[in-house]
């Protein structure tokens, strides 16, 4: 097993792969710009109009932009893996790193670390920038659940990127994964999720977003919710690993 762990050279190589493509690097930057930007713009537009104008739960409302930023996180995660399926890029990659487990873990680790770094910065910036425009309805860092939401939102974005990355390795197509996931988080989960509780609370995005709530709508707590989402992401990453290991390149 030790022989299959990522090494500094393989991680470096994966980082160059991400930063040398407009799509993946752009997706990573968009996670920050979209989440914090939409949050600030929305808060500036309607945040001060009346109490609860951004939603009943003020903490969850502080992460309104996350609904959009998570799409950028998916685009980043899926893109970082799907670039291997363009032409025969995977063959070149595996010729350089023939141990497939090491190749895959290096990629997943690079995606995870980058998403975590950008996610944490985004989590803090979104909170600060959004609340700046909330006037007397603003929350302050230190209010109940705020630190949890700041850290949790970064973890949420990281898990979403890994979920998309694992699925892409499994299904071998970023387009397929994004055309499944984006409608899912934009519509299906919204519609189904309104009937809170039941099975819907275990959907990856619904469960993960519990970490942003001040009041828990269902049976799961904030961290157990994020844990449920981590199981989804873990299953996707595992499925991707089995596919990468088994299939001919």
């Amino acid at each position: 097993m030790r022989a299959a762990l990522p090494t500094a050279p393989t991680l470096h190589s994966e980082w160059i792969k991400i930063r040398s493509l407009r799509g993946t690097l752009g997706g990573l930057i968009a996670v920050f710009l979209v989440t914090a930007g939409i949050q600030a713009l929305t808060a500036a537009a309607i945040g001060r109009s009346e109490e609860g104008s951004m939603g009943d739960d003020p903490l969850f409302a502080a992460y309104y932009g996350l609904s959009f930023g998570q799409i950028a996180a998916m685009v980043f995660g899926a893109g970082a893996v799907s670039c291997e399926f363009h032409n025969g890029a995977l063959r070149t990659s595996l010729a350089a790193v023939p141990n497939r487990t090491r190749f895959y873990l290096s990629k997943i680790a690079t995606v995870g670390v980058l998403a975590l770094l950008v996610g944490q910065v985004t989590g803090l910036a979104t909170f600060v920038a959004g609340q700046e425009f909330m006037g007397r309805y603003a929350l302050e860092l230190g209010d109940p659940g705020t630190y949890r939401a700041v850290v949790g939102s970064g973890l949420y974005l990281t898990l979403m990127a890994l979920f998309a990355a694992g699925l892409t390795a499994w299904l071998r197509s970023g387009t397929v994964v994004l055309s499944l996931l984006i409608p899912f988080v934009v519509m299906v989960s919204f519609v189904v999720g309104e009937a809170a509780g039941g099975a819907a609370q275990f959907l990856p995005d619904r469960a993960g977003q519990l970490v942003l709530h001040a009041r828990m709508p269902g049976d799961l707590g904030p961290w157990t919710g994020l844990g449920v989402m981590a199981l989804w992401a873990g299953a996707a990453v595992l499925g991707g690993w089995l596919a990468v290991r088994r299939r001919d390149a």
């Binding site: 050279p9 032409n87 990659s93």
Partner: peptide, 25 residues
Amino acid sequence: ALLDAQSAHGGRTARDHLRILSAAG
């Protein structure tokens, strides 16, 4: 190995393509 001429992602520059290989190798 040269397997086929299409074994590189079209969106990268030639230098980046080789840098990825040199870093990994």
